[in-house]
Simulated scan of single mutants.
Amino acid sequence: MRAVPILMYHSVRDDPPPDTAALSVRPGVFADQMALLRERGFTPVRLSDPAADVPRPICITFDDGYADFHSEALPVLASFGYPATVFVTTGWLDDAGPDAAGRPLDTMLRWGHVRELAAEGVEIGAHSHSHPQLDQLRDGPLHDELTRSRLLLEDRLQTPVTTMAYPYGYSSARVRRAVARAGYTTAYVVANDVAADRSGYAIPRLTVQRSTTPAAFGRIAEGSHRFHREKILTKGYAVVRRSRYLYRQAMPRD
């Protein structure tokens, strides 16, 4: 299968709250980035679309399900004719009602928005139900997070949902096995590498954030940006997270 860069966005707005600011891109900058993709001959495709027969395929993904995807990002994408994938945190949705869970970091999409996006060809994936650190959960709550989000999306959209992205990008071999058992066929991490293919349960993506310069974005899209600092921090933190989980496992259960 052909290697494809997969861009990872979160929010598109001028004035994000502090908790999302670092991963929020200004609308004008986002439009410039999409224009750069066109100038360089990229062809955005959905994660589920074949890429063998298109010139310079690239995927555009959004995590969490912020309302500004509908108000800011979607009009830009539509103006270029670009598809995208949105990974939705179901318990964070603005009208989640009795299913509300977790702590949304900003104004979120509503179910009506999610249905509208799906009807317009935006690919919808799961992003857990309450956006926890999945690798720190015991097996029961982990299974609930994974299945609840998928079943809610399938019920509201009346279509299978078979892909998901890990909140915070955190996973482990145990979490990946649970994702497979929960009915997903693919799952996405961060990793900041170009995906050799789009199969399996640890497919890498490339982070686009507020500090990304035009030159850096060009390198990210081309797959040549090295993300040295991010990769060093990720490897170190993986050791810390594994130790935390083992410690919690050793603690008495309630």
Rank of each mutant, 00 (worst) to 15 (best):
F217A: 03
T162D: 14
L233G: 04
D139V: 09
S199Q: 10
L206D: 13
T207N: 14
T163I: 15
V194F: 07
L233E: 12
Y170T: 09
A215I: 10
Y168P: 00
F227P: 07
G223T: 01
T207H: 13
A215S: 10
Y188F: 15
R210V: 03
G200M: 11
S224P: 06
H129G: 04
Y168H: 15
D193W: 07
S211L: 07
S224N: 07
T185S: 13
E120I: 00
H143G: 06
S211H: 08
R229K: 09
R210P: 10
G218K: 06
P132N: 11
V122Y: 01
Y188P: 00
H131Q: 08
P160D: 02
L157I: 11
G140S: 02
P167K: 01
L233N: 02
Q158T: 09
R205L: 07
R219E: 15
A119K: 12
R177Q: 14
I124M: 08
H131L: 08
H225S: 08
D144M: 01
P214L: 10
R219A: 12
V175T: 07
R198C: 07
H228M: 05
S172M: 11
H127F: 06
G140F: 05
A202I: 01
A119H: 05
A126C: 11
A216N: 10
V194W: 03
S128N: 01
E222V: 00
Y168E: 01
Y170P: 00
D135L: 15
G200Q: 03
I124K: 05
R177K: 15
I203F: 02
G169T: 10
D155Q: 12
A178R: 10
G183Y: 04
P132K: 10
Y201A: 06
F217Q: 04
A180F: 02
L152R: 15
I232A: 15
V175P: 01
Y170A: 14
V161N: 07
P132Y: 08
R219Y: 04
A202E: 15
R177T: 14
A196K: 15
Y188K: 05
G140E: 14
P141A: 07
T234N: 12
V208R: 05
V175L: 05
S199V: 12
D144I: 05
S128P: 03
P204M: 13
N192C: 03
F227C: 00
G169A: 10
